[in-house]
Each structure stands twice: as structure tokens, then as C-alpha cells.
């Protein structure tokens, strides 16, 4: 079987599992099953809420990775772009505390997206214009973001307020699923919409067709007049913007403040989610939710007062799951063929 056929089979299994999980969650939260502690830890509303909360930055990070990598640019720097976005959001928010809350939050979101975009553009410039190895360029982005945010971080500044949940009429009334999915703050909705948009964009629009062609076979794209590097610049910048949004989410919706190095490896985990999802938006979203779930589990186990296992070991869970996933699935997925390679128009004979 060809890799993409294997992938289709995997995806079906994944969806079946996901549906089974939702069904279980509904059962646990509406019936007497919910009285068992361990079932509540595994499937309670709080676990589901936390899963989504932890998954959103991973989803956005993975979408950022897909945007870049589908056009042939490896983006190991998501972590740095996210951190830069988070820091930018924080600075923007603390400086606009006296504005009306919504205006201030939206403005800060835009700043986060913009700074992320600049980091993406920088990565594209390094890798395309200056032909830097793309993995090293990504590392530069990470170190740069960590250094600048630490240097400029004003530890006394406080961001006031964050995005509040918006309940969607009717949908939010559905038991279990309603409060988990349809009573969330703005950026969560935005992230989920983005997944669908990216899927449609990649597979059903001219932009997506060209992006994929550029990432798979740049010369073929070039010979039909598609400007390969312009697409790579554009997509990497877009990817940076989405990663910036992920950072904005952390500060403006999830936490409300900035801490040094607050991305804590989320950029890298979202890369793993992207690989796990075979560079497809919905696949990557599924993987992100899985990773989010391991983080939720960590949280729930601590809340449930599990003392036999030290908290350090529970905290390792997301990282260990990432390693297992990367080990088990790489080789069975297929990355865009032209990834990581510089493309030159002239003299390619």
C-alpha cells in the first residue's frame, strides 16, 4: 500500500476513536457513571475543557507548520514565533489597559499576529534569500525570540483582563458538548474556524493547489509560470502570523499574563502534531487534541490528588507521548517532497 492509503486507514481509525471518546464523555457526564473518580478524571467536563484549552495553541502552531511546510519551508521556529507573538500581545495589552477592554484585546491580538508575521518573514528571508539551512534558521528565530522577550520584559507590568467566553445561542445548550465547544472565548472559535478554512484553502482553491505544487515539485510549478519563492515567502509569513496568534491566545485568552519562556515547548509539540496529522489540517487538529488531552490528564490527575506518582512524572506525559508518536508514525507519513531545499530558477539544468 502507498503511504497515503495507509494514512487514510489511520484517519478513519482516528475519527472512530474520537467519536467513541465523545460518546463516553457524554455518558460519564450525564449518567451515574460520573460517580467513579477515575472516569471523571478521564472523561469529565473539566478534562474536556482543559483538553481544548491546551489544544488550541497546538492547533494554531500545527496550522502554522502546515502553511510553511506545504510550500516547502521547514518551520522549526514555531516555538519562537509563538513566544514573540505572546510577548507582543502582552506589551500591547499592558500599554492599552486604559482602552475599552474589547478594543484593547483585539488590538493586542492584531499586534501578536503582526509580530508573528514579521518573524515568519524573517525565517523566509533567512531560508530563501540567504539560503540558510532551514532548521538552523528556525533555531535562530527561537533564540532571538527568547532573548528579545527576556531583555524587554517589564516584570512589573500587568495585563488587565482577557477574552471572556461567548456562549453561542442554542448550540451551547447541548449537554456536555455545548459548554465544552460552544461557550468559549473568541480566539478558540477563531482557531477552529481556521482549521476548516485551511483545509478548504489547501485542497479546493487556486492558492492551495499552487502552494502544494510549490512544496512538492517546485520546478513543475515554475515551468507553468508560478513564482515559487513568492509563494514560499507568502506562506511562511502567513504561518508566522498564525503562530503569533497562538502566542496571543496564550496571553490574551488562556493565561492573561506573560511569563518568560511561557510557550514551554508547545511550538515543538505542534510540529509533532503536524507530522502525526500527515500535514493535513484536520489530521493535525486531531493530533493536537490528543496532545491537549495528555496535558489535561496531567492536570486532572494532580487535581484528583494522585500522590503515588510524583507530579514531575505526570508532567512528562505530553513530551513522552510526543516522542512515542514521532517514533511510531514518521516513515508512515509523507512530507511535502521538496521540503528544506533551496529552489533556484536559473541554471537548474
Amino acid at each position: 500500500m502507498r503511504p497515503h492509503r495507509v494514512w487514510k486507514a489511520t484517519a478513519i481509525v482516528g475519527w472512530v476513536l474520537a467519536l467513541a471518546l465523545v460518546a463516553l464523555a457524554i455518558l460519564v457526564n450525564t449518567t451515574a457513571l460520573g460517580e467513579r473518580t477515575w472516569l471523571r478524571v478521564l472523561f469529565g467536563v473539566s478534562a474536556l475543557n482543559f483538553t481544548l484549552r491546551a489544544a488550541i495553541p497546538l492547533i494554531l502552531g500545527a496550522m502554522s507548520g502546515i502553511l510553511c511546510e506545504r510550500s516547502g519551508i521547514i518551520n522549526i521556529g514555531i516555538e519562537g514565533m509563538m513566544l514573540a507573538g505572546a510577548f507582543a500581545a502582552f506589551v500591547a495589552k499592558t500599554n492599552t489597559n486604559d482602552w475599552p477592554l474589547t478594543t484593547s484585546l483585539l488590538f493586542s491580538t492584531l499586534v501578536a499576529v503582526g509580530i508573528g508575521g514579521i518573524m515568519g518573514l524573517l525565517h523566509a528571508t533567512f531560508s530563501i534569500r540567504f539560503r540558510m539551512d532551514q532548521i538552523i534558521s528556525g533555531t535562530v528565530i527561537i533564540i532571538l525570540a527568547a532573548g528579545i522577550s527576556a531583555y524587554l520584559f517589564d516584570r512589573d507590568a500587568v495585563a488587565e483582563g482577557k477574552f471572556a467566553p461567548i456562549a453561542i445561542p442554542l448550540l451551547s445548550q447541548i449537554p456536555v458538548i455545548g459548554p465544552v465547544l460552544f461557550a468559549k472565548p473568541l480566539l478558540t472559535y477563531l482557531a477552529l474556524i481556521l482549521v476548516a478554512l485551511l483545509h478548504v484553502g489547501l485542497f479546493y482553491t487556486r492558492w492551495g493547489l499552487r502552494t502544494r505544487a510549490v512544496g512538492e515539485h517546485p520546478r513543475a510549478a515554475d515551468t507553468v509560470g508560478i513564482p515559487v519563492n513568492r509563494y514560499r515567502y507568502m506562506n511562511t509569513t502567513l504561518g508566522g502570523m498564525v503562530a503569533g496568534l497562538a502566542g496571543g491566545y496564550l496571553v490574551l485568552e488562556a493565561v492573561g499574563q506573560f511569563q518568560e519562556g511561557m510557550t514551554a515547548g508547545r511550538g515543538f509539540i505542534s510540529l509533532a502534531a503536524m507530522i502525526f496529522g500527515n500535514w493535513n489540517p484536520f489530521g493535525a487538529m486531531g493530533a493536537s487534541v490528543l496532545f491537549g488531552y495528555t496535558q489535561a490528564l496531567q492536570n486532572e490527575l494532580l487535581l484528583a490528588g494522585v500522590k503515588t506518582v510524583p507530579r514531575h512524572f505526570i508532567s512528562m506525559l505530553p513530551y513522552l507521548v510526543t516522542i512515542v508518536v514521532v517514533s511510531g508514525f514518521v516513515g508512515r507519513v509523507r512530507p511535502p517532497a521538496a521540503e528544506g531545499k533551496v529552489y533556484e530558477t536559473e541554471g537548474g539544468e
Partner: peptide, 14 residues
């Protein structure tokens, strides 16, 4: 100059 993972339609119209 064809993209192997794409369909004939996609390759032709690219």
C-alpha cells in the same frame, strides 16, 4: 514536470 501526488486534473490546470 508533474506533481506525483496530485491528480491529472490538478496537474493539467496548475
Amino acid at each position: 514536470q508533474l506533481v506525483p501526488v496530485m491528480s491529472v486534473v490538478d496537474n493539467v490546470m496548475l
